[in-house]
Simulated scan of single mutants.
Amino acid sequence: MTKYDERFKRKLVEQCLSGTAGPKSLARTHGLSHSQLRRWVAAYRSHGAAGLRKKFSHYDAEFRYAVLQRLWRDELSYTQVAALFDIRSPGSIGVWERRYHAGGVDALASKPRGGSRKMAAPISPEPAIPVDDAQRSREELLAELEYLRAENDYLKKLDALIQAKKLVAQKKRG
């Protein structure tokens, strides 16, 4: 995704607000989507030049819940609520809403990023107790024989494919 600097955004927003060009034509000439330009205009109207600056913020569960309550109470769109609360990504509000419906207010809390700090101890499989062939049933022995034959056939086929690839590679070189 292309990042635009604050001066560029402000120039386009001011052109749009002054009426010299419409948002669709202005966005088309600069290779933007008109919805992106409309979001910039809405953010500028609500928060001034600060609405166009880069913003790196994390929202707590209370703030997210307040945003959702306002969304539902006033029947606003994600874009409108994002402009009101100066949230740069309206799509994140939809994610919050789905989380809320799935798990309530507790699901709105941020989850820590990354994996666990401690490496889990490897689980070693319990070694199979060797059983003497004389004690095994005929069906068990036949099943093992069938398995070993299939494994042997597979390995032979794999070896043949590898040899064929080597032969083709040699023909291409020479």
Rank of each mutant, 00 (worst) to 15 (best):
residue 32 L to R: 06
residue 145 L to W: 08
residue 29 T to R: 02
residue 174 G to Q: 09
residue 117 R to N: 03
residue 86 D to H: 14
residue 12 L to P: 04
residue 117 R to H: 03
residue 54 K to V: 02
residue 61 A to F: 13
residue 33 S to D: 15
residue 14 E to N: 12
residue 1 M to E: 13
residue 56 F to T: 11
residue 67 V to L: 05
residue 70 R to N: 13
residue 52 L to R: 00
residue 164 A to L: 07
residue 9 K to F: 04
residue 79 T to R: 03
residue 159 D to Y: 06
residue 11 K to Q: 10
residue 28 R to E: 05
residue 78 Y to E: 13
residue 94 G to R: 05
residue 10 R to S: 04
residue 108 L to Y: 04
residue 84 L to D: 09
residue 76 L to Y: 05
residue 118 K to C: 04
residue 46 S to I: 08
residue 138 R to H: 04
residue 36 Q to D: 01
residue 85 F to L: 00
residue 114 G to D: 07
residue 23 P to L: 09
residue 23 P to H: 06
residue 142 L to Q: 11
residue 55 K to M: 13
residue 58 H to F: 11
residue 130 P to Y: 02
residue 152 N to E: 15
residue 63 F to Q: 09
residue 43 A to Y: 10
residue 59 Y to I: 05
residue 34 H to T: 04
residue 162 I to A: 00
residue 162 I to Q: 04
residue 77 S to I: 01
residue 102 A to L: 14
residue 106 D to K: 12
residue 161 L to D: 14
residue 40 W to G: 05
residue 3 K to F: 09
residue 29 T to V: 00
residue 72 W to T: 15
residue 132 D to E: 15
residue 70 R to H: 14
residue 147 Y to K: 06
residue 3 K to M: 11
residue 172 K to M: 11
residue 112 P to L: 10
residue 38 R to Q: 11
residue 70 R to S: 12
residue 44 Y to D: 12
residue 81 V to T: 14
residue 143 A to K: 01
residue 9 K to R: 10
residue 152 N to R: 12
residue 80 Q to S: 08
residue 121 A to S: 06
residue 62 E to N: 14
residue 5 D to M: 05
residue 57 S to K: 12
residue 116 S to F: 06
residue 153 D to S: 09
residue 167 L to C: 01
residue 103 G to H: 06
residue 119 M to K: 11
residue 57 S to N: 12
residue 62 E to Q: 13
residue 80 Q to L: 02
residue 19 G to S: 08
residue 61 A to N: 13
residue 22 G to C: 03
residue 131 V to C: 13
residue 130 P to G: 05
residue 67 V to A: 10
residue 152 N to V: 10
residue 90 P to G: 02
residue 121 A to N: 07
residue 158 L to Y: 00
residue 96 W to T: 03
residue 145 L to K: 09
residue 172 K to C: 08
residue 59 Y to W: 15
residue 164 A to Y: 05
residue 60 D to K: 07
residue 103 G to P: 10
residue 155 L to H: 06
residue 96 W to F: 01
residue 99 R to Q: 13
residue 63 F to Y: 09
residue 35 S to M: 09
residue 127 P to C: 06
residue 143 A to V: 04
residue 102 A to K: 15
residue 152 N to F: 11
residue 1 M to R: 01
residue 15 Q to E: 15
residue 147 Y to S: 05
residue 37 L to K: 03
residue 28 R to M: 03
residue 78 Y to I: 00
residue 134 A to W: 10
residue 74 D to I: 04
residue 41 V to G: 00
residue 85 F to N: 02
residue 128 A to E: 12
residue 29 T to Q: 04
residue 10 R to F: 03
residue 22 G to I: 00
residue 124 S to F: 15
residue 155 L to D: 08
residue 113 R to G: 10
residue 171 K to S: 08
residue 125 P to G: 05
residue 6 E to I: 11
residue 156 K to M: 09
residue 20 T to L: 11
residue 44 Y to G: 02
residue 87 I to V: 14
residue 152 N to W: 09
residue 11 K to H: 07
residue 45 R to E: 15
residue 15 Q to P: 00
residue 42 A to D: 15
residue 90 P to Y: 05
residue 32 L to T: 00
residue 83 A to G: 05
residue 174 G to R: 10
residue 104 G to E: 06
residue 30 H to A: 02
residue 95 V to I: 14
residue 95 V to Y: 06
residue 136 R to G: 07
residue 35 S to F: 02
residue 80 Q to V: 11
residue 72 W to C: 08
residue 43 A to L: 15
residue 123 I to M: 14
residue 172 K to Y: 02
residue 47 H to G: 01
residue 71 L to E: 08
